Computed example of a mutant assay.
Amino acid sequence: MREFSVPERVGAFGALVAAGAAVWPMVTASTGAALPCPLRTVTGVPCPACGLTTAAVALVRGQFDTALQANPLIFGLAAVTVAAGPLLALRATGVLEPPSPWSPARRRQMGWVAGLLAAASWLFQLHRLRSSLPY
């Protein structure tokens, strides 16, 4: 069995998120269940991922403005998810070679990119939810 690339893994995660976002409204409507942010529940401060469930549900429903307002990162996840499908198909049929492992420098670079995206998302959430912050 071959190793999957980071974009393929993120794409698979995005597919799971999309499936969950399609089902989640039915679950909440019938059970009243909710997924509160643990950090925001305990401290009152939103996390970088706050709004992602709302954004995913809105995106699945085609409510792009609502998704953008809840958490813009959902569009990046959606883009990688859409790109990963054909990538997986091309690799499975042998059109593209299996991925080669990333070098330590490339892993470090992507770690910085992920960290900067998380920081930008957190700043966005702090700005978006500023009126409900405890300070």
Rank of each mutant, 00 (worst) to 15 (best):
L96E: 11
Q125P: 01
S121T: 04
G111R: 00
V113Y: 02
G94H: 09
W122C: 08
E97P: 06
A92K: 12
R106M: 11
S100L: 15
S121K: 02
R128I: 01
A118E: 00
A119E: 08
V95W: 15
A119P: 00
A89G: 12
G115H: 02
P104L: 00
L87F: 08
F124S: 00
A120E: 04
R128N: 14
A105S: 15
L87H: 10
A119G: 07
L96V: 09
S131P: 02
P99Q: 03
M110V: 05
P99V: 00
R107Y: 03
R107K: 14
Q109P: 06
R108M: 06
E97G: 14
Q125I: 07
P98W: 10
L88I: 09
A120M: 01
P104R: 12
G115L: 01
P99T: 07
L116Q: 02
W122D: 01
G94N: 04
P86Q: 13
S131R: 14
V95E: 03
Q125H: 02
L90N: 12
R130N: 06
F124Y: 15
A120K: 04
A119V: 03
P101C: 09
R106H: 07
R106S: 10
L90K: 12
Q125E: 12
W112H: 09
G111I: 05
L87Y: 08
R107W: 13
R107D: 07
P98C: 04
L96S: 11
L117S: 06
A118P: 00
A119Q: 02
L129S: 09
L88D: 04
W112D: 01
A92F: 10
Q125A: 12
G115E: 08
S131W: 15
A89P: 06
V95L: 12
A118C: 09
Q125N: 08
P99M: 11
W122R: 07
P104I: 13
S121M: 05
A105Y: 06
L126R: 01
P104V: 08
S131T: 15
A89E: 10
A120S: 09
M110T: 12
W112F: 13
L116A: 07
V95A: 07
P104S: 13
L123I: 15
L90D: 03
L126C: 07
